[in-house]
């Protein structure tokens, strides 16, 4: 077996362990709820029997480890439980399964994130690399100052500036991104322009700065100076000498920012009333709908962990020291 395979497997195992602990933390959320939350969910008028039945349904009569095992088994088979909302004191249960709530919204969110990423990633890499190559030029200073300003803006400020100009004053793009399952593709794209643009602006700023720093760091290596002293042309220095060593830092930058995108989506969805998973989570927090919050948190965390895992693996498989062991 190639030693690199071992390193990769080790890293994947570490990811799985992390995911396990994260699921433990998310599961234990329900443990910290005050004892009378069943009452609160069902309303003051709920009878002893309905409360008892609800507690039994949640499995609160069983010890926590047993419940965790059952919960994680259910999650793995795609069952995320049932929402708290829709229940009432009478015991009539109009609640919906969490999967049904999340699924369409998850696709909406992924659509929006993908739209932003398709524009943001290449743009940010281009800006970052060129700024690093023409360091301290006017171009670099302008890009630097404007990205430093952008990362200081709260997402909702960027969003409202865009709404003000792009939807109210100058143009007429939709300020509310109302889509549903039937919305045709291009109409969906049109409605998502402003939220996607908001996220793009925020991500590009972060990503460009990180790319620039990573490239500058790389170009300071002695082997780059050696390549120049060997008379290698500027473009060859970049392509042949810098790039093969740049994959790891660039992958890290991309993964970090895609993860950031996933989180940033929460605020943007609320601003544009976009029916995505972020908005669902915020609503569920307001109504303290624990099963939905848990499910959303699990999805966000898993995305985050997997993205970082991929970046690490790219870093491992492009590392010549690991690729060609002694």
């Amino acid at each position: 077996m190639h030693p690199i395979l071992g390193t990769v497997l080790q890293r994947i195992l570490l990811g799985v362990v992390t995911l396990f602990f994260v699921s433990l933390i998310i599961f234990s959320a329900i443990e910290f709820l005050p004892g009378d939350f069943t009452q609160a969910v069902l309303g003051q008028a709920a009878t002893e029997e309905t409360v008892a039945a609800f507690r039994k349904e949640l499995g609160l009569d069983q010890p926590a480890p047993v419940r965790y095992m059952e919960w994680i088994q259910a999650v793995m088979s795609g069952d995320l439980g049932t929402s708290f909302s829709g229940r009432n004191a009478s015991g009539i249960d109009r609640s919906r399964s969490v999967v049904d709530l999340i699924e369409p919204r998850l696709w909406n969110t992924l659509f929006l994130a993908a739209m932003a990423a398709i524009v943001a990633v290449p743009l940010a890499l281009f800006l970052g690399i060129t700024a690093a190559l023409y360091r301290n030029s006017v171009y670099d200073r302008v890009v630097n100052a404007s990205t430093l300003t952008t990362i200081s803006f709260p997402e909702f400020f960027v969003a409202y500036i865009l709404i003000l100009f792009m939807s109210q004053l100058w143009f007429d793009f939709p300020a509310i991104a109302s889509v549903n399952a039937e919305t045709p593709f291009w109409e969906r794209v049109y409605k998502c322009i402003l939220p996607a643009l908001t996220m793009t602006l925020v991500i590009v700023a972060h990503m460009m700065r990180m790319t620039r720093a990573a490239i500058i760091n790389l170009l300071a290596s002695p082997y780059i100076e050696m390549a120049r002293l060997k008379g290698i042309s500027k473009s060859q220095v970049i392509l042949r000498h810098a790039l093969p060593n740049a994959w790891a830092p660039i992958a890290t930058v991309i993964a970090f920012n895609l993860a950031y995108l996933v989180v940033g989506v929460v605020v943007v969805e609320v601003v544009f009333v976009y029916p995505g998973i972020g908005q669902l989570m915020v609503n569920s927090v307001t109504t303290r709908d624990i099963p939905v919050v848990q499910a959303c948190a699990l999805i966000f965390a898993a995305t985050y962990i997997i993205l970082n895992l991929i970046a690490d693996i790219i870093g491992i498989v492009t590392n010549p020291r690991l690729l060609h062991p002694r």
């Binding site: 959320a29 910290f32 989180v263 915020v282 927090v285 624990i290 948190a297």
Partner: peptide, 20 residues
């Protein structure tokens, strides 16, 4: 800390706010 940082902090904050 590694485990805590594996959950995006805004998401974690939202979850904890639900509880507390």
């Amino acid at each position: 800390v590694d485990v805590l940082m594996a959950i995006p902090s805004l998401i974690f904050a939202l979850m904890l706010l639900t509880i507390f």
